[in-house]
Structures are given as structure tokens and as C-alpha cells.
Design a protein around this nucleic acid. Structure first.
Length: 463
RNA sequence: UGGCCUGUAGCUGAGUGGUAAAGCGUCCGGCUGUUAACCGGAAUAUCGCAGGUUCGAGUCCUGCCAGGCCAGCCA
């Protein structure tokens, strides 16, 4: 008899009265002296565990009465309508095989009780057994799938940009070095510098901070492309919104300007949210109940409303006129601080807000210079709770302007990037979306370390 | 990297210089088609580590370690 995923049983894939086999882990067991035990089993396929009703007539019933949280079991029986409240169907067990016991029930890290997220981070290998992390894991999976679906259905090509790069001038953050040199005995040049020509790639190399520059080259051939993969930043950032290793989605569209880019971001988010509400009803109900009451309403509101757009210049004016006291003063030309971004999306727009056309001086070299010569065609999508969810721009497609924003070393290193402006250049634009930030925005989870299975942060990479 | 906060039982967490609460979980018993059940009982603590002050330190001081929050950097 084949295994039945618990999700199938609740979904009605199996007829009542049919024989089913469930394999999973015990969440709770309650024994009734009337001669039955109730065993709740989860297998990760859906939020709810299934209840198996085990009669004392089973030969190994004594074993069953010793089952506790974390034990692994195979339960065979008949799928029946539940006599009790709280679940639609349950399994009338005909056999219970205990596959793995829990050594020391008292010390089992995931006891049948509430745990803090902070504690569960120290048990990252076992936390997927909890309600919350099971839900987050399924949410991540659904969102990733929705992202690929969105792009696939809209004619985008998924481009697998490299994780190892030799470019250290992208400006997106500190880089992790990749090297096979013997650290205890580094080769030196005549000048005494480390001789990277002897390193694996024949030059200095690093883990990527962004696939953008590479994906632009495919954009200028395939028209609509995106990357979706891990990125690495060696910033010493200790906040609830930063990881040293995180996943990023970076679409890039040709023959497009900043408005097209912003429109893509909005349509993309709305469609992903729509799919999440349709496909993860059970987990979203959990988030709304236990993590953030607004979790479901928030997504529905975003789907139903238009994003608020404002120029950086207007945003600064709005902040100045707000009458609110900020720790850092606002004036045209400054990079907005968290408190400013928070005000704009949480108090002013009360939802996602798109801020566009930032001062040239505070933005990256590849962003397109506007006609005013003061601002670039950049945009950030700010959302309540997580702040900057998306950062994007129209790219500088004019070689002379691009060159003016790079120094000699960059021009030499990024010769291939410059080539893209020499051979059939076109206006193009794209953005980067932090996948874990998206997961937190959707679920209402507050710490990004809980949005990824095994978080990597400064000073911490256990597991 | 800076500022602030926190380390007490498996987990959560009281304890304001003088005998280390309690809840949950665990174990035992009772009850029950139960459902994060309920009732009764029991076991469980080098008070993060190392120094110092004191007759006496979980409590005060110093250093270190670990974690968290906020800020900067960004996604």
C-alpha cells in the first residue's frame, strides 16, 4: 500500500472507508482509559496534523501509550469521518509501527508547548517540526513557485547567473572572498602583495552580491529575464532585516523605462500574493491567528489597491511637512533613514509606496541619469514592517554617461558591461527583491532569521 | 561597527545583599471521543564563564562569552 500525504486525506483525495497509510512524526498523544489513544501526526504536507484513533486491541498498544512528541511512526488504518470535534476526518488505526523513539522526552528540544522564535533558532535542525516553521517552509515553497510561474507565464527566461564572480566593483556591499590559496603560506608578488594570479581562477574572486550585471547581458538578447538564487554580502549588519546569505529575485526587462519597472513590480507582487492566498489558506490562517492578525488582510489590501507613487523630491517634502520629529533631519539630497521610510509606508501611505528618482550622489553608478542631471531613474518599494522590499532602476544605457560615472579601474574591469552599451544598447530596467523580506512581509514574521531554514549572520553559521 | 537590553530547571520566567517562586513540558496516578484537555502527585538548578567587593552575591563592580533590539549598510 502506498503512502498517503496527510494533505491528500484532508483534501478528500481518498474516499471515506478506504485504507490509508500515513508516515510522519507524533505531535501529541492523549490516552483515554476507555481503551483508545489519540495520536496526532504531521508529515509536513499541510498545516494540520491528522488524528489517528488507536484501539487498545492492537498488540503493541502499550508502546503506543508511550509515544510522545517527536517519535516517528507509520500508521495504517481506515479513513473515517471524525466522531470528535476539531477535525473532519481521522484514521481508525489498524497498525502503528514505531520507527524511531525520542531518546529523552524531557530533553527533547521541541516539547509539546509554545517556544520562542529566539529559542527555536538555536534548534534550527528541529524547528521545521513546529507549526510555525512548517508553515514558513511551505510558504517559502509556494512563493518561490509563484515567482517562477509569474515569470514563466509572462515570457521571462530564468537565467542562472554565476555565484562566483571576479568583479568587486558592483558596489552592492562587502564581498566574501573565494580562494583555494593556502592561507598559511600565501604566494606573494615582487611587491609583496598576495599573488592572486596563482589562485584558482587566476584572479581575485568572490561570492556574488547580485546577479544584475550578468543578467543585463541576457536581457539585451532575451528581452525579459530574471535571476532567482542566493546572494552573499559580508556586511557586518546585525538587524532583523539582513542576512549574510539570502535569496534574491532580479527581473530585467528590455525596451523599458522606470515606469515599466515599477508597473512590473506591482503586478508581480499582486499576483504572487493572490497565489499565496489561494494555495496556502491553511498556513495563512495560522499566521493571521498566531503571528500577525493583519497577515491575510494586508495581502488582500495590496491586491485590491494601487501602489502609491511619489518622487524622492515629493517624499522629502512630505516628510518635512509631516510635523513629525525625526532623529535625522530631512533635506533634499540625504539618503532616507529607516524612520523616514517607515513613516512613508506605515503612516503616510499605510501600504506599499514606490519612491522614485533619487539624487544621483546617493545611488549606484549603473542607474540612468535623468534629464535634470541631479537625479537617477531609481525606485524603492517600501512596505510596512520590513522597509525596503524592492530596489530597482532604469539602467544607464548611454556609454558616455555610464563611463562618466565609473573610474578607470571599473571601466577596465567591466569592459564587457560597457560592450552592452556599444552593441545595440536599449533602454532597460530591473529590480532586486529580497526573498526573505518578502516571506516576512507575507507572514508577518518579524525576524529575517526565521524566514530562511539555516540563517547566516555575522559571527554565526552553525548547522 | 556603534548604542541599549538580556543570560536563573528541557522551555518560559519571578527573585530590589541574607534558606532559588511559579507555569508549561517530562514522569507517576485519576478522569475523559480526546484534541495545546482536565484533576492530583513527583523529579528536575554548577543562577552564562572568570575575577573582585562583602561576614554573606542569582542580586553590586570589572572583564570575557552568547543572544536580542535599535541605528548604519542594503534586498
Amino acid at each position: 500500500m502506498s503512502t498517503n500525504a496527510i494533505a491528500q486525506l484532508f483534501r478528500g483525495d481518498c474516499e471515506l472507508g478506504s485504507k490509508v497509510v500515513v508516515k510522519g512524526w507524533v505531535r501529541t498523544r492523549r490516552t483515554s482509559k476507555a481503551g483508545i489513544s489519540f495520536v496526532a501526526v504531521h508529515d509536513g504536507s499541510c498545516f494540520d496534523p491528522i488524528q489517528a484513533v488507536v484501539p487498545e486491541s492492537l498488540a503493541n498498544y502499550e508502546e503506543v501509550t508511550r509515544l510522545g512528541a517527536g517519535c516517528s511512526v507509520i500508521i495504517s488504518g481506515t479513513l473515517v469521518e471524525s466522531e470528535g470535534k476539531g477535525q473532519s476526518v481521522e484514521i481508525q488505526a489498524e497498525s502503528v509501527e514505531v520507527v524511531g523513539w525520542v531518546d529523552d522526552p524531557e530533553a527533547y528540544p521541541i516539547a509539546k508547548k509554545r517556544h520562542t522564535f529566539e529559542y527555536l533558532r538555536t534548534q534550527a535542525h528541529l524547528r521545521p517540526r513546529t507549526n510555525a516553521f512548517g508553515a514558513i517552509t511551505r510558504l517559502r515553497n509556494t512563493v518561490a513557485n509563484s515567482i517562477h510561474n509569474y515569470f514563466y507565464n509572462n515570457g521571462f527566461n530564468w537565467v542562472n547567473t554565476p555565484l562566483i564572480t571576479s568583479s568587486d566593483c558592483e558596489g552592492a556591499g562587502e564581498l566574501f572572498r573565494v580562494s583555494t590559496l593556502d592561507m598559511a603560506n600565501l604566494p606573494r608578488t615582487d611587491k609583496g602583495d598576495v599573488d592572486y594570479s596563482q589562485d584558482f581562477f587566476g584572479s581575485e574572486s568572490f561570492l556574488t552580491v547580485s546577479g544584475q550585471l550578468n543578467v543585463e547581458s541576457y536581457c539585451l538578447a532575451m528581452s525579459k529575464v530574471y535571476t532567482f538564487g542566493p546572494t552573499f554580502r559580508a556586511e557586518n549588519s546585525n538587524t532583523s532585516r539582513h542576512l549574510a546569505e539570502f535569496w534574491m529575485v532580479e527581473p530585467e526587462i528590455a525596451f523599458a523605462d522606470l515606469e515599466d519597472d515599477a508597473a512590473l513590480a506591482e503586478d508581480f507582487l499582486k499576483q504572487v500574493f493572490q497565489q499565496v492566498l489561494e494555495q496556502r489558506e491553511d498556513d495563512m490562517a495560522f499566521f493571521a491567528q498566531r503571528v500577525d492578525k493583519e497577515a491575510i488582510n494586508r495581502l488582500q489590501n495590496v491586491i485590491d489597491s494601487k501602489f502609491v507613487h511619489m518622487d524622492y523630491t515629493d517624499a522629502i517634502e512630505t516628510l518635512q511637512k509631516s510635523g513629525k520629529k525625526f532623529e535625522f533631519p530631512v533635506e533634499w539630497g540625504v539618503d532616507m533613514a529607516s524612520e523616514h521610510e517607515r513613516f512613508l509606508c506605515e503612516e503616510y501611505a499605510k501600504g506599499p509606496v514606490v519612491v522614485k528618482n533619487y539624487p544621483t550622489d546617493i545611488k549606484a553608478f549603473y542607474m540612468r541619469l535623468n534629464d535634470d542631471n541631479k537625479t537617477v531613474a531609481a525606485m524603492d518599494v517600501l512596505v510596512p514592517g520590513v522597509g525596503e522590499l524592492i530596489g530597482g532602476s532604469q539602467r544607464e544605457d548611454r556609454l558616455d554617461v555610464l563611463d562618466s560615472r565609473m573610474d578607470a579601474e571599473m571601466r577596465e574591469h567591466l569592459w564587457w558591461y560597457r560592450d552592452l552599451r556599444r552593441y545595440g544598447t536599449v533602454p532597460h530596467a530591473g529590480f532586486g527583491l529580497g526573498f526573505e523580506r518578502l516571506i516576512n512581509y507575507i507572514s508577518g514574521m518579524e525576524n529575517i532569521r526565521d524566514a530562511i531554514p539555516f540563517p547566516r549572520t555575522p559571527g554565526s553559521a552553525p548547522f
